Each structure stands twice: as C-alpha cells, then as structure tokens.
Measured scan of single mutants.
Amino acid sequence: MQIFVKGLTGKTTTLEVEPSDTIENVKAKIQDKTGLPPDQQRLIFAGKQLEDGRTLSDYNIQKESTLHIVWR
C-alpha cells in the first residue's frame, strides 16, 4: 500500500509499505529516500508519536494515510 510522509518543509515523500511493517522498517525506507537516519526521525500520526516496535496496523494506518515527520 502507499502512504505519504510529510515533513516540516511541506515536502511529501511517498512510500510503498505493508500494514505489517514495523515503524522501524518504515524509518529505514524513509532513510533510503531522504538520507535522514532513523535515529533522527520522529513519526507522528493522529497526534501520536509512533514507536519503533509497533506496526502500521497497530496504529490503524491505512493506504494513503499521511504521517508527519519531525527531525530530532
């Protein structure tokens, strides 16, 4: 499925993911596209910070959802 990651600059990155992907895995995909290391990424969805060990489905993140990224 496709999801979007929007940064503070307003730039949006598209990712191809599975609902079973962990947040850690998603951060690795973001690094592949942007070069930003996972330890500098904070992902937010529906006002919650996403924890590395959880999956996208744990947070009810579905296709075409938009996550927000904040740099540490």
Rank of each mutant, 00 (worst) to 15 (best):
Q62N: 08
T13Y: 15
Q41V: 15
Q49Y: 12
E16L: 13
K48T: 12
R54F: 13
K29C: 03
T22P: 04
T66Y: 07
I61K: 00
T66P: 02
L43T: 01
K29D: 02
T34H: 07
S20K: 08
K29E: 03
W71P: 13
P37A: 11
M1D: 02
R72M: 14
D52V: 05
F45R: 02
E18Y: 15
T9K: 12
S20I: 06
N60G: 14
V5E: 01
D52F: 04
P37H: 12
E64V: 03
N25M: 15
V70I: 12
Q40V: 09
I3E: 01
T34V: 08
Q31R: 14
E18K: 14
D58P: 00
D39Y: 11
V17F: 04
L56N: 00
P19K: 07
T13C: 10
R54D: 06
A28L: 15
G53I: 06
E16N: 13
I61E: 01
K48N: 11
I61N: 00
L43M: 03
T14A: 10
R54W: 11
R72H: 14
Q49H: 12
L56K: 00
I23E: 00
M1F: 15
W71D: 10
D58C: 02
V17M: 03
V70E: 13
E51N: 06
Q2D: 05
L43I: 07
R42K: 13
K48E: 13
G10A: 08
Q40S: 11
D39F: 10
F4S: 04
L36D: 04
D32V: 12
H68E: 13
E64Y: 14
D39T: 10
T34W: 15
V26C: 03
G7N: 09
V17E: 00
I61S: 01
T13G: 04
K33H: 09
M1G: 02
T66R: 04
L36R: 07
R54P: 04
E16V: 13
E64G: 15
R72A: 14
G7K: 04
A46F: 09
L56H: 00
G10P: 05
D21L: 05
I23H: 01
G35M: 04
I3T: 01
Y59G: 01
Q49S: 09
H68F: 13
I44W: 14
E24T: 07
Q49A: 12
S20L: 09
F4L: 06
D58G: 03
K63V: 07
Q41M: 15
I23L: 04
H68W: 12
Q40L: 11
Q31M: 12
G53S: 10
L50T: 02
K27V: 02
A46I: 05
I61V: 10
M1T: 03
K6E: 08
P37S: 10
S20Q: 10
G10Q: 07
